[in-house]
Amino acid sequence: MKEISKKVKEIASRLLSEGQVDVFLAWEKGNQDYLTRPLVVRSAEEAERIVFDEYSIHNLSNYLLKFRDGNEKVGLVVKGCDSRGVIRLLEDNQFSRDRLYIVGVCCPGMKDPLKAIKRNSGLLQNIPDDDKADKCSNCAYPNPLIYDELLGSEQEPNVKGERQAKIQEIENMSPDERYEFFRENFERCIRCYACRQACVACNCRVCIFDEMRPQWVGRENNETDNMMYHLVRAYHMAGRCVECGECERVCPVDIPLMLINSKLAKDANEFFGPYEAGIKYEEGSKPALSVYRLDDPDEGFM
């Protein structure tokens, strides 16, 4: 990991000093061992702050949205899951490939800095000291799927299957039980929209939840409006979620959002597949459910 960190720093420094990129997205160290945070670098000098370590968990492809307007060339570091986010943005025409310099890192799985700070905060009980972040126990693509330069040695997928088992369990529930399961989880939602903000597939310029005229979703923090928020977001994720798990990781009230997203990914694959979002970039290709055709056999889609 130290070797990779050094190389990332060198690459960033080289790209910035040679003018190949204007901005480079990586990580820096905060004031605790477990605090690694995203960093936006604009000069070779600033690149000295860059680190890559076992807490570099954030999906930096999301930060590309800050640069989508304009002509700046952006370099960034991606792990396997993050690279799918880059493909998402390319497919959605949010970025052109020639504005990107992608440094891929084969990822052995990360630890979660948020869990670590919460565990040490004195504010929460029973936060387990897992070896790997939850999202890294459901990792089908540890190796970057799009890159200009690749670091590290290829890693094996790590799908523990717990999430899939839970999805199966929910599929087998009666509608009432299922409703109750989600009601209980969404009841906790504080509507901070961190799930949306951390999501690379949430790249609409004006989000439906921010629209005022008409206001599609009410702002009350109650069963109806919370449910509406999460269900509408879920539908928008179908066929688009790249399963990076950031929404679930950043949720301050621990809502198991990836159960929903993975179920929808599974359905998209079964109904419209074989299909997995963001695993291969081909110019002009579109995610399932993003194609509109006049000869669509289903009138409902017209």
């Binding site: 901070c192 929209y193 961190a194 950043v250 301050p252």
Partner: peptide, 11 residues
Amino acid sequence: SNCQNCGICTY
């Protein structure tokens, strides 16, 4: 520069 603009801090 690294703020994702969610509302967690305010809530």
